[in-house]
Design a protein around this nucleic acid. Structure first.
Lengths: 332, 332
DNA sequence: CTGAAAGCGCTAACAT
DNA sequence: ATGTTAGCGCTTTCAG
């Protein structure tokens, strides 16, 4: 059997309480005893049980991360930020993928609560809103990433998707484009909707005729959608709601015998690692995914420690990065 | 406060024991009482505490995943397989990134054990071997992915890296190549070493002069290494130890004014999602990462349930996929 | 078929 | 400064 605190106590000839004290670095333990206990711990290779401690203290050193799909290249970086920050603050991290299924999302949230996590970082779909509203009256802190949910008291960390899209369009316009198409993401994803709105408003503001093709946030979707966009609209520029879509479109554009950026300039969104590996390299709106993750955990930590005063929404800075797919390199 | 089993018991006018029985689907509870309890549970919105249960039963429904870096595109798919299988079997999953740092690896293993996980899926470096050996006498089951560690009793799931590399070289030779270079991975990664050995043996067996350039498993490494490989060896073919390296090399080869596959044919390893998105698309040795993950969890589950008879090493099938970077498409 | 009671490994008053 | 004693929320004998 694994040694328990009692085994240590006996071996060190002290009480459980004293062992507990040295475990928790309580300063008022006589140095000599402290050493005796420490030695017993070493000798027995004793490791305290985190769950027993959680149960006793009614606190938790576990937090949860619920996201759509770690396989989508946008998320690993975000997840890494969350994980690094979590470990830095002493938390262990649970993880679950929902595939944007509201039922699964709900199931996992409750499952994590049953695990007694101290808080949850949630990347939710629009359809998951109902669930999140239910959660309003539970005591488990939640921080939302990449969107907020009005009417709930939960903190959120994100970028201004609307403005990002708006700026991408303006950028194209400034470079002389007027036929700018948009490959939109699924309508159950908040950020996709916001980017679409930003695109449309920017086009209207400039008096240009917009063209939107709605799909999923995948490479394949980009491949499949772009053909008809070209046929029906003859764009000279394309703003895709995420990089995967942009990459798929670029591949198909090339296969169809057109050139990027000469015939069609492309801007994506996310700045996933692949965007610098593609040919041509992809211009994109860079999202500070890692920092979003770190910030989310910090907010969660604040809430868990009760260091909070009302709901907080943090808007991170995005940045348009011009790589080859948009015809030039003015920065980086 | 959150309702406890006692609250439910009182409301249903029964004892805690009875509530526990209906929770655990014990059949010998009178239907009428069962319903009364179920109703109380609903009304109070009661959720049992998993950690309290774990403590009481001395079992655990948590498992851990320790991997180098979720940000490396090979791992998300593996992780997804692990996660899906874990949830399917009723486990919650902890995750930690080690960045191939043996000290961190050790820290996280012990941290997870303190969390009382029932088992761990570990993707370890060579330098982590010492730690893993220490673990031999602990009771927590461990399953290794992508490598085995001789002298330990731990199950492992992997592919035959040596043979995979050997076959890649043979494939090049069959296509008429004789100047075949190898971009190797870091020497603290077992699979990288095995691939290098496979490459070297295949070259020697064919009487060809090998050329190896050692780097890390990254895109940047591929970019930086390939230049001198070309200068010093003038290869007509390149086998890279992983896709990231291959992709980096391809980008630089193109920048230097050479063509893939006409001047230099390229084969990578892993079959990461981006290998079909690149230009040209990347020929590679496909590794069934998702299935490796699923299998690892199944082995872990077996061990945790005591359904085991000795150490098990599962070798999964790899498959060479010929895409554009190798000059043709004979399959897929 | 149900209840009482002990106990899982730890912490936290309260004593001493 | 250290020990005693209750629990934390649940399961599990053991009675009845």
């Amino acid at each position: 059997m694994k040694p328990t605190i009692l085994d240590v106590a006996e071996r060190a000839q002290v009480s459980k309480a004293t062992v507990s004290r040295v475990l928790n670095r309580n300063p008022q333990v006589k140095e000599e005893i402290r050493e005796r206990v420490l030695r017993a711990i070493k000798e027995l290779d004793y490791r305290p049980s985190a769950i027993a401690r959680n149960l006793a203290t009614n606190r938790s050193n576990m937090i949860g991360l619920i996201l759509p799909d770690i396989t989508n290249p946008y998320f690993p970086v975000l997840a890494r930020g969350i994980e690094d920050a979590a470990h830095q603050l002493g938390y262990s991290l649970f993880i679950s993928n929902t595939d944007n299924d509201p039922a699964l999302e709900k199931e996992y949230i409750y499952k994590m609560m049953e695990q007694q996590v101290g808080g949850i970082v949630l990347i939710s779909t629009i359809l998951g809103e109902a669930t999140v509203h239910e959660l309003t009256h539970m005591q488990t802190p939640i921080v939302l990433c990449d969107r907020l949910i009005a009417g709930t008291p939960f903190d959120a960390v994100m970028i201004d998707d609307y403005r990002a899209a708006y700026e991408a369009v303006q950028y194209f316009i400034a470079r002389g484009h007027s036929r700018i198409a948009h490959l939109a993401g699924p309508k159950n994803i908040q950020s996709a909707e916001n980017r679409k709105r930003g695109y449309l408003d920017a086009m209207h503001a400039a008096g240009l005729e917009p063209f939107v093709s709605v799909g999923s946030f995948s490479f394949e979707s980009g491949v499949h959608q772009i053909g008809s966009v070209i046929d029906e609209y003859s764009p000279t520029a394309l703003f895709a709601a995420n990089d995967l879509l942009a990459l798929g479109a670029m591949q198909e554009i090339h296969r169809l015998g057109h050139r990027v950026p000469e015939d069609i300039a492309v801007i994506g969104c996310d700045d996933i690692p692949f965007s610098v590996m593609s040919r041509p390299t992809l211009s994109t709106i860079s999202i500070p995914a890692y920092q979003i993750g770190v910030t989310a955990v910090q907010l969660l930590d604040d809430q868990m420690k009760g260091v909070r005063s009302g709901t907080k929404n943090v808007i991170m800075e995005h940045k348009l990065i011009n790589r080859e797919s948009c015809g030039g390199v003015d920065e980086e």
